[in-house]
Design a protein around this nucleic acid. Sequence first.
DNA 1: CCGCACGATAACACGTGTGTTATCGCCGGA
DNA 2: TCCGGCGATAACACACGTGTTATCGTGCGG
Lengths: 103, 103
Amino acid sequence: MKLSELKSAAEVHDEVLTSPEAKAERDRTAFAHDVALRVISYRATHQLSQSALARQLGMKQPAIARLEAGDHEPSLSTLSRLARGLNIDFHVDVTPNSLELRA
Amino acid sequence: MKLSELKSAAEVHDEVLTSPEAKAERDRTAFAHDVALRVISYRATHQLSQSALARQLGMKQPAIARLEAGDHEPSLSTLSRLARGLNIDFHVDVTPNSLELRA
DNA sequence: CCGCACGATAACACGTGTGTTATCGCCGGA
DNA sequence: TCCGGCGATAACACACGTGTTATCGTGCGG
């Protein structure tokens, strides 16, 4: 075992303070919610039903409903699919203590 | 890998024109490769072994090796974990025809 | 009242990214 | 030469996001 494989006291201290699991969970749902809002507002401004939007994206209506529910974090491949199908951009900022969707 | 094994620009161009799926695949692996480079260069500048970095991130050495191989598209939760553990930022641009990691 | 579009939800299968253990080959120092 | 860490890889289990079908309730137009 080498010294470089040991955690420094500062690192351990940071872990105690930040409670990474709880924060990760908060960010996860917040991000999902932001993506949901993008989909919802697109559908509103384009006057589309969930079924119509699903057709436009090559998906089924329940998939859209699930996205708009914002209950789980969309994958990057799903974001890519949305960007293509809706002709919009997503800009994601991943920082040491947040996961955000930028305008 | 030898130069002769690489596709020419013309061949890649044809793929984009003829097969949208091929482009999605290219973006996926290119993105994975970019993330891999970030991890590799961090580890190089900080003089860490894969095992040491794994420990710093709460992972095992093979997980780091897999990340650096760049064969899978990292999930957003993995990116968050890297950002937290390495104290770096990732900025992801998702547009209708590309998935890029910005500097 | 009836029918139909709409949106939400449940249930299930499936792909893929991740976590982990166990090795393997390689190389550098004692 | 032997032994140590290092990095790659295989093999497996598992979590999670996704695709899909089948409903169910609601509300509106006929």
